[in-house]
Deep mutational scan, measured.
Amino acid sequence: HNLTITQGKLFFHYNPKLCLSEIHKMEEVSGTKGRQERNDIALKTNGDQASCENELLKFSYIRTSFDKILLRWEPYWPPDFRDLLGFMLFYKEAPYQNVTEFDGQDACGSNSWTVVDIDPPLRSNDPKSQNHPGWLMRGLKPWTQYAIFVKTLVTFSDERRTYGAKSDIIYVQTDATNPSVPLDPISVSNSSSQIILKWKPPSDPNGNITHYLVFWERQAEDSELFELDYCLKGLKLPSRTWSPPFESEDSQKHNQSEYEDSAGECCSCPKTDSQILKELEESSFRKTFEDYLHNVVFVPRKTSSGTGAEDPRPSRKRRSLGDVGNVTVAVPTVAAFPNTSSTSVPTSPEEHRPFEKVVNKESLVISGLRHFTGYRIELQACNQDTPEERCSVAAYVSARTMPEAKADDIVGPVTHEIFENNVVHLMWQEPKEPNGLIVLYEVSYRRYGDEELHLCVSRKHFALERGCRLRGLSPGNYSVRIRATSLAGNGSWTEPTYFYVTDYLDVPSNIA
Rank of each mutant, 00 (worst) to 15 (best):
L470G: 02
D250S: 11
C267E: 08
S509T: 10
S262H: 08
T494E: 00
P300V: 05
S341C: 13
F355P: 11
P496K: 15
R376S: 03
E227R: 08
S398G: 02
V507M: 13
T340G: 13
K271D: 06
L235S: 04
D222V: 09
K317M: 09
R301H: 04
E433W: 13
T210L: 08
A220K: 08
L321I: 14
L470P: 02
S479P: 02
S262F: 11
L505S: 09
R483A: 04
E351L: 14
F355D: 03
P434I: 07
K233M: 12
H461C: 11
I438Q: 05
H211C: 00
I377N: 03
A336C: 14
H416Q: 08
W493R: 04
N435L: 00
V507N: 15
T347R: 00
S262Q: 12
S509I: 15
L379Q: 02
G325M: 15
A463E: 14
H254V: 08
D291H: 08
V397Y: 10
N421D: 03
G322F: 03
F285Q: 04
C267Y: 08
A399Q: 06
R301G: 07
S248T: 06
F372Y: 05
S344G: 06
C266K: 11
G306S: 10
A381T: 08
P314Q: 15
L225F: 02
R483G: 01
D323Y: 11
K432R: 12
P312H: 11
G306L: 08
Q275K: 04
L464G: 10
E227N: 13
V393G: 05
V299I: 14
A394S: 07
H461E: 06
G374R: 14
R390E: 01
E224Y: 15
E260C: 04
H352T: 11
M427I: 08
E221L: 14
V324D: 03
Q275D: 04
V480R: 03
T502S: 08
D323L: 12
L455G: 09
L453V: 03
D450K: 09
G476R: 01
G322N: 06
R240S: 14
T343V: 12
S268W: 09
G467W: 07
A407S: 07
A463M: 09
R316W: 15
R318F: 15
F499N: 01
Q275E: 03
F215H: 11
D291T: 01
V329H: 05
D204A: 15
E388R: 09
Y448E: 05
G322Q: 10
E310L: 14
N477P: 12
Y498V: 11
T494K: 06
S341P: 09
Y500Q: 05
T347N: 06
D222Y: 06
P238M: 05
A488P: 01
T502V: 13
K361D: 07
G234T: 10
R286G: 02
N326I: 10
S342V: 10
R400W: 09
P387I: 04
V439E: 12
V299A: 12
T307W: 12
G308W: 05
Q219C: 10
V334M: 08
T303E: 14
A309K: 13
S492R: 08
D450S: 11
N208T: 03
L237N: 07
T415R: 12
E356Y: 11
E420A: 05
S283R: 15
L437Y: 15
R286Q: 03
G467R: 13
E247V: 08
H352F: 14
S268P: 13
N383D: 02
E260W: 13
P270Y: 11
K460L: 08
P508W: 11
G476D: 01
T497G: 11
L455N: 13
R286V: 04
L277R: 11
A381L: 02
N360D: 09
N383V: 03
R218A: 09
S284R: 07
